[in-house]
Design a protein around this nucleic acid. Structure first.
Lengths: 158, 158
DNA sequence: CCCATCTCATAAGCCTGCTTATGATATGGA
DNA sequence: TCCATATCATAAGCAGGCTTATGAGATGGG
């Protein structure tokens, strides 16, 4: 096993996350939803009335990815798109009563899963892992400001 | 921010891995491939001549997921499926010369990425993160042995 | 005021994962 | 030997990411 530590961590991070994603998806399915949709509902509960662009940015998702998630949530009547009187392009997202009820139930499940999966791991280890993940996240996160600046600069130059 | 540590880690793990996956995909694309396909090539280099079931198990992937990855790799002439004289159901996987060349070049890239993304993080933190990930991985990994045993037991009972 | 430019949402098309199901082949016990 | 069962690979169909492209509407500098 000569694999250097840093490469090993890259590898394990992606693999572990995939396993965890699948695991959480199975749990979510027992409640008739999916991990990704659950994520949208959760955020929406804490910040209702967001438009899709703002929510996508908050979730580090491409707007089109969120559009399709919301399509499915809307079909299931868990989320509503409402018009914005001030800007006819935007759609403001609201939970329906059913959506609110579902997400509140799921909150319990999230806690259960975290307990199962991390039982016996002490807080110090979790804090350290969070820090390391934060570093990775910052270095791989798409730099939206820079991207927008670059686009503007290119526009100016052209 | 009252979010408990363990829930926060679950969340950050999945989000960070997604960002990393996308980042690595972009790098892989510069070499004309994808992260997932690269993964297959890497494993194959270290264990050529595996059949698909064995490789899927090693990668914690469902066989069908691997089948389609291999389809694309075969189309690109990076991998070959060969018949097994001893069992006509199985296909043995081999790298082509082009496949071997590609994966050897990519090895450098993997090291580069690990360095960029984890620069300044000390070894102790990486070891701890690996340990925590290992715990999660073990608890979320599908238990193939148990599953197979359950299937056998069900068979016997029926 | 008007037009170039930006932004919001979405479409099209791709990759990769999953579950469920199926056909071909192997295998082991009666 | 023969049949029930298991295993290997794959198909169908879905979810959820992505890139690239487009139309509608907002906005600001000239």
């Amino acid at each position: 096993m000569m694999r250097p530590l840093r490469r090993e961590l890259m590898f394990q991070l992606v693999e572990t996350a995939r396993l965890l994603r699948t695991y959480v998806d199975q749990r979510a399915r027992q409640h008739g939803t999916t991990r990704a949709q659950w994520g949208v509902l959760s955020r929406l509960r804490r910040a209702e009335g967001l438009n899709q662009a703002a929510l996508a940015e908050q979730m580090d998702l491409q707007p089109i990815s969120l559009t399709r998630l919301v399509d499915r949530l809307e079909q299931q009547k868990l989320v509503e798109r409402r018009e914005d009187a001030a800007d006819r392009r935007v759609r403001l997202l609201h939970l329906t009563p059913e959506g609110r009820e579902l997400v509140e139930g799921l909150d319990t499940v999230r806690g259960e899963i975290a307990g199962e999966v991390l039982a016996g791991v002490d807080d110090a280890a979790i804090v350290m892992a969070l820090e390391t993940l934060g570093t990775i996240r910052d270095r791989t996160r798409p730099q939206r400001d820079e991207r927008a600046q670059a686009a503007r600069a290119a526009g100016r130059a052209a």
